Amino acid sequence: MEDVMAKYVRNIQGNKVELELVEIDPDDVVLDPTNPRVGFSMRQLGDAEAGDAACTLLLTSQEDTESLKRSIMLSGGVQEPIYLRHDRTVAEGNRRVVALRAAKEEHPDNPAFGTMPAWIIPEGTPEHVVQDLLNEIHLGSVRGWAPYEKALQMRALVASGLIEAEVAERYRMTTNDVRQHIEAANLMDRLYFPITQDPTDAEHRSKYSYFLEFAKNGRIQRHREAMPDLAQRFAGWVRDGRLDTGMKVRKLPKILDAKEAVRLLEVDGFDAAEEYLSERNPREQEMYLLMERARARLAEMSVVELVEAKHSPERLEILEALQQTVTDVLDNIERVAVRQTQRKAGGGRKRR
């Protein structure tokens, strides 16, 4: 049994939890197989394989764990306590455990790498209180929760027995926001990670915002009713890089409105689909979009702006030049149309 170095009563959402601070050997703790960085891969393993060794291997293979190990070695050990459940399973600090184990293996005679500080969460603490504790730790930490990890935390709170409205209150969100965050995480776990080459790659988790936009966008959700496989196809588009920015995901509803645009997205990519739409709708073309914005802005000029323009030769010159340019363009369009009509008529007479 470890010696208790200190005790601290922490108020967590109105629940008082007495934490005990101990020094513990990193080899005496058990890694959390549900850790967001490795959770998906661990769930794919059988019970016999999904142990501490597999979790260690998955965390060790990530580049940021190696950099954390170097940081720990430079600072002479782990400085910030991890959090352990009463059975010594890691609640928070899995990477620090793995990094310290590696440092200890490289320098077995250095006592700085033999133990690490840890807060012990007492037995009998309700799971939702543990999840609230982890949430508070990360909200107040420089590390913070990454968006995907935050969604998993919400999901864990719901799984522990809280209703979505209670979770929303903790995160200062609406109930619908919480539902959408959880749905986005579920979509990634169910449809995206399984089709990626390496589900543990941290780059995949950065795509979470795409799936959140997918879950939130009302126009996309309406398309799901007519396209039952839309979520699966969306996951494939993200994996293949056809949707590789948040802006493209936000523009997706316009593509879904046209079957040919969807086909072009899948065959030739997003730019081809967008070009097809711009040909059908001038307002999708950059030049016409700029003109439409300018027209709308001119139509909304206030009295003050009109008076200002009246007494400003420079402003009047710009407006008059714009008027003349538009007139010239319209005249040119008309002349081109007349020539094309005459050419067609002449060609028709020759054929006769």
Rank of each mutant, 00 (worst) to 15 (best):
L187C: 02
A103C: 05
F40V: 01
D28P: 02
E213W: 04
R37F: 06
A261S: 06
L316G: 07
L74K: 14
K150F: 15
K216V: 06
L57M: 08
I120R: 05
T327A: 04
Y276R: 15
M154H: 10
D201V: 05
G114R: 10
P126A: 03
W145P: 04
G346A: 07
D257T: 08
G161H: 02
G77V: 09
D28K: 11
Q180G: 04
I333W: 06
V307T: 06
L243V: 03
Y288I: 03
G14E: 12
E106F: 01
Q13C: 11
Q153T: 15
T327K: 02
E106A: 05
E260S: 02
Q44V: 07
Q153F: 14
D244A: 11
A184S: 06
E49G: 14
L21K: 10
A91K: 08
D331S: 09
G140C: 04
G218K: 14
H86E: 13
Q323V: 04
E136P: 02
E127G: 07
P108I: 04
A337H: 02
L212V: 07
Q324V: 07
I333T: 09
L100V: 00
L58A: 12
C55H: 10
G140K: 05
N281F: 14
E105H: 09
R297P: 00
E305H: 04
I333L: 09
P126F: 08
M73N: 01
L84P: 14
L84E: 05
D229R: 13
A168D: 13
N217M: 01
A185H: 14
R101V: 00
V78T: 11
V303D: 09
S41P: 15
P199S: 11
A168S: 15
Q221M: 07
Q180T: 09
Y288K: 08
D32E: 03
L134V: 15
R190W: 00
T174W: 09
L134S: 12
F214I: 09
A299P: 02
K7W: 11
K251M: 05
G14F: 13
Q232V: 14
Q153R: 11
I82C: 05
A118C: 03
V303P: 00
T245L: 03
E80N: 13
M188N: 09
G246P: 00
P228N: 04
R37E: 01
L289Y: 12
R37L: 03
S75V: 15
G348K: 00
V17F: 03
N35C: 08
L139T: 13
V326T: 03
E275H: 00
G140H: 09
K259W: 08
E127P: 04
T327H: 00
L330D: 12
H86N: 15
L298K: 01
V167H: 08
Y148G: 13
L134Y: 05
V9N: 01
L139M: 13
R335I: 14
A103W: 01
T56P: 11
R283P: 06
L74V: 10
R143C: 07
R219I: 03
V38H: 10
L212A: 03
L152R: 10
T245G: 05
L298A: 08
G246R: 01
I255H: 08
A102L: 06
D198C: 10
R172D: 13
Y83G: 12
M5K: 14
S206I: 10
K69F: 04
R352V: 11
